[in-house]
Structures are given as structure tokens and as C-alpha cells.
Design a protein around this nucleic acid. Structure first.
Lengths: 203, 203
DNA sequence: AATCGTTGGAACGCAATCGTTCCGACGAAA
DNA sequence: TTTCGTCGGAACGATTGCGTTCCAACGATT
């Protein structure tokens, strides 16, 4: 009883006997759109469906909850990974690292989703594992950079790696995400120079 | 008609002909509690009232909206400001600066509210002015520190101040807030040492 | 002693969103 | 050609919180 989809608009054609991967991708995109716009906690799956030109059923047929949706959405983009720079000096390596970070931090969706992810994790740890996966990949790139510099004798073997890993990405994050300011290429290289000097003092 | 507060619990004594400042403070505290627990967007003023042992009317008599409530709550705590360190060397000054930051970043509510504030601003700019006020106060302390070092000839007069201001707080923020890791006093002083070296290279 | 306005509390109408279920239309696989 | 299950869409009951309004109880000021 109760329902009857009869007397509204003519209802557009749709449907097929197999899940359409293109629709799945469209749902991912719409999910990140919503996330950037409203924040994780305020994501409305109804809006996500509408934005993807889909029905709500298409979502719940694929994922059982918002959380699972988020998990697979992030896994999906996390596969688009990290190429590796490889220059011939510590400072040049750092500059390359910073450039790739700057590209990331300029992305309008990442500028919003990343802080929201941090805020969400600080409250609940529900998304902690998500974040950890992402962070680990990033960190390993920085570690490689340090190892190369040590092999080149540009950094001491007893380098404080923890400190170094905190030092490398943080000023750029502070400037671009926390302070929301752009950075020019020359400024970025100046930062690379200063960071190289700092690392050499981190024995 | 319609209402009647008659047949529930005996209704505790309350009321007076004058606003109670203690209640206002209790409401501020409950507001920050809620903020830390759920995030700004999800703050429920009903829960805030309950947590403060107050009625909802007590809130709406003081502030006209959640936003105004937030504004005055933050103003209220922002008055508890920033004492100034003043040591006898750049490195010692930096260490003092970092220590005061570390205390801030250890506070369980600030650990949650600060990232949430950043995430909220990245979406809407509604809270941008709040954040700007706070940031400005912090930054001026760092500026003083740099000026003293220049006067002592520990830093060059043509120091890149922008870069320096990005450099000082960011590694600690990255470690304590982004990576959620504690920091020991010796680690903190090592960071101060490295940062001093970095600044001297930021001409 | 009388006034006045705050107090905690309960209810209002409204708006969202949740996760679920149903539908007729449709197309790919068998 | 028939079967099968996905498609967009609409509705469901439940839950939540908004901002507002009413209330009787109460105590500081006058």
C-alpha cells in the first residue's frame, strides 16, 4: 500500500541488471563534494544521491553506512598515489617534496576535507585508521628523502628522524592550511633552503 | 493553554530578579564542553543548557543565536591571555615560546576545538574573524621574540619574517595536534635548537 | 512588603536526516 | 526472449534540534 509513483513526472528511463561502475565513481565524487561543502558529520546521503543523479537506494545497495561509504571512497582515491622525487641534493629533494605537498594543499577539496578529517578524529577516533593509512604513505616518502641525504653524507647518521619528519611538512601546512595563504615558488625554495639548514643541525 | 508544568517532579527552587554571572560562566563552560565533544556544527543548545543545569530560556535570554554565543564565549576566554617570555638568547626565547604552546596544545578541549575551528572556517568563513583575533595575539608574541633576537644580533636584520613566523609554531602543532603525539621537555628543547639554526639561515 | 525579572522546565511547530521499503522502468546476461 | 536485479524516485516512521513561548517558583532590589 501507501506508495504509488504514478501521478508525478513521467519518470526518466533507468536501470540495468548490473551495477554501473561509472555510477559508483559519480557517487564517490558527490560524496567528496558534500564532505568539502558541509563536513563529514553533516554529510547527507540524500544530497549525495541527488548530486550524483542517483536514487538513495543506489547508495544503500553498495554500502551499509556512511562510515563504510567514506572508507571505500578514501581507499579509492588513496590508490592515486605518490610519485617519488629524486634529485641530487638534500635541498633539491626537499624542494621537490614541498612542491608535491603544495599541489596537494592547493586542491580546494583537500583544503577542506583534510582539516575536517583531523577535527573529526580528535573527537572520536572513528576515522583514525583512515588518516593513519594516508599519513603512513606520505611519511615513507619523507623517510626515503632523509635516507638518501644520509647516504650522501649531507645529514649525520644519528639524525633525529622524528624531529626531521615533523619539520619537513609542517611549515607549509601551517602557511597554506592553517593560515590559508598562497605560496610562490621562490618562497617555497627559500623554505626548502631553511629546512635543509635545520636538518643539518638535528644530529 | 497547552502547557502545564504541574505533574512531573516537584520542580527545584530557582530564579531571582537578577542575572547570575555564575550561570553565565557555567553556560560558557558547557558550551566549550559540547564544542569539544561534538564539534561546532553539531552543538545542541538544549544539551548545553542541560549540562549547565539550566533551562533553554536562560540561554536565549543572553544570546540570540549559537553564533553570538560562540563569539562571546571565545572573547571570554581570549581575555585569559598570553604572558610574555623574556630569556637571554634566541634559543632560550624559542624554548619558552614552545613551552607555552605545548601547554596550550596539551589542553584536551583545545586539542579538539582548535582543529574544529580550522575545519569550520575552511568551509564557511563564518568563524574566520574569531580565529583571526586569536592568531594575531599569538603572532605578535612571536614577532617580539624575533625583534629581540635581531637587536641582540643573533638574527640578520633582513630576516624573512613571514617564513620565520611560519617556522616557529608549526613543527610543534604538527607533532601534537596533527600527529597527536606527546612531547618531552628534552625533545622540545631539541626542537628549539633546530629552529634557532633554521632562523639564522633565513636571511 | 511589594515589585520585578530571572530561574528550571516543558511544550510548541518546523525542518532535516536517518535507514528502510516499495514501485514501475529498464537493459545485460542467459 | 526471458530472467534477473539495478535504476531513479517517492514515501515511511523515528529521531533530533532549532528558536519560541508559556509557566509557576523564587529572591534581590526598592
Amino acid at each position: 500500500m501507501a506508495h504509488s509513483s504514478s501521478n508525478q513526472q513521467p519518470q526518466k528511463p533507468s536501470g540495468a541488471a548490473v551495477q554501473r561502475p561509472e555510477l559508483t565513481q559519480a557517487l564517490y565524487r558527490a560524496f567528496f563534494d558534500e564532505w568539502a561543502e558541509r563536513g563529514y558529520a553533516a554529510i547527507s546521503l540524500e544530497r549525495v544521491a541527488k548530486k550524483a543523479g542517483a536514487g538513495k537506494a543506489a547508495i544503500y545497495r553498495r554500502w551499509s553506512s556512511k562510515r563504510e561509504f567514506a572508507n571505500e571512497a578514501i581507499e579509492d582515491v588513496a590508490l592515486a598515489v605518490t610519485p617519488i622525487p629524486d634529485e641530487d641534493s638534500l635541498e633539491a629533494d626537499i624542494a621537490a617534496f614541498l612542491r608535491s605537498l603544495a599541489i596537494l594543499f592547493r586542491h580546494p577539496q583537500i583544503r577542506r576535507i583534510l582539516p575536517d578529517l583531523l577535527a573529526e578524529r580528535a573527537r572520536s577516533d572513528e576515522l583514525a585508521s583512515l588518516l593513519e593509512t594516508i599519513a603512513m604513505a606520505r611519511r615513507s616518502r619523507a623517510k626515503d628523502l632523509l635516507d638518501r641525504a644520509i647516504a650522501r653524507d649531507e645529514l649525520p647518521v644519528d639524525l633525529d628522524r622524528e624531529l626531521a619528519l615533523d619539520l619537513l611538512p609542517s611549515p607549509l601546512y601551517w602557511r597554506m592550511i592553517v593560515n590559508q595563504r598562497r605560496i610562490s615558488l621562490t618562497e617555497l625554495h627559500r623554505q626548502a633552503h631553511v629546512l635543509a639548514m635545520a636538518l643539518k643541525a638535528a644530529g
